[in-house]
């Protein structure tokens, strides 16, 4: 079953046509990596999937319910978009933790004040998540007291605290130095093993190859190639993809 289905997505910023008729699905339990050069539209695609950008045309479907659809040639978003937001979580490149809240409050506040869940119950769940991530001693720390890797792990658990069905990652390790990248990738790998549905925009090629069920290669606002990671990385048919991967092999 597809959790997310996006069809014929068009998105322009002024005269800059960023997404050109993109369609993609994500099935339950699937890990999809989106790779491609800068400016290829992969981050925009993720931002459209999470409603941070509005699409110009196309349909977005979560759990077979339309979040955005075409009506009389115009793209119309559903009135209850916040109900859809509970389906997914998003991990940002720059973490975007709330600096004035402790780690625990960062995690607990949305479930309690947005989803109106029981505070003690949420606290227990959040502490359990922190234990799982080896961050239990950081519950009362403020984000500024943590390393970049720890901050990103906290932002992952903050997203998980909402019990999302699907988790998006927008270049989760791009703001981290290589030493800290590993601890974040380990967490994502662990989630993949637990069959968390995830879409990951990344520049970490070997990671994408190892962790994903499917790889999407984007360039110039279109999906150039997608499929099994071994196929895409090992035996690509596309010249553009070969050229792109060359840059990684050369270093």
């Amino acid at each position: 079953m597809s959790i997310l289905r996006m069809s014929n997505i068009q998105k322009s910023f002024g005269s800059n046509h960023v997404l050109k008729d993109i369609s993609y699905n994500v099935d339950k339990g699937e890990v999809v990596s989106i790779i491609g050069p800068s400016g290829s539209g992969k981050s925009t695609l993720l931002r459209c999937s999470t409603f941070l950008e509005t699409i110009d045309s196309g349909t977005i479907t979560y759990d077979d319910k339309n979040a955005a659809e075409m009506k009389n040639g115009k793209c119309v978003y559903a009135k209850n978009l916040n109900d859809f937001r509970h389906i997914f979580g998003l991990v940002f490149q720059n973490f975007n933790l709330f600096p004035h809240y402790t780690v625990l409050k960062n995690m607990m506040d949305a479930p309690v004040s947005v989803m109106k869940r029981n505070k003690d119950e949420v606290r227990e769940e959040c502490l359990e998540l922190l234990r799982k991530m080896g961050l239990e001693d950081k519950a009362d720390s403020y984000p500024c007291e943590l390393s970049g890797g720890q901050q990103q792990r906290v932002s992952i658990v903050r997203a998980l605290a909402m019990n999302p069905e699907i988790l998006f990652f927008d270049e989760p390790t791009s703001a981290l130095d290589p030493e800290l990248t590993g601890e974040v990738l380990k967490v994502i790998k662990q989630l993949a093993e637990e069959k968390m549905t995830m879409v990951i925009v990344t520049h970490e090629m070997s990671f994408a190859r190892a962790v994903s069920d499917r790889v999407i290669f984007m360039d110039g606002g279109v999906i150039v190639e997608q499929g099994d990671p071994e196929e895409v990385f090992g035996n690509t048919q596309s010249e553009r993809m070969k050229q792109f991967l060359q840059n990684y092999n050369n270093v």
Binding site: R85, F98, M162
Partner: peptide, 13 residues
């Protein structure tokens, strides 16, 4: 702007 975006994704009004 990231603070607004994080809040929006988490469903804050």
């Amino acid at each position: 702007v990231g603070q607004y975006e994080a809040a929006q994704v988490l469903g804050y009004s």
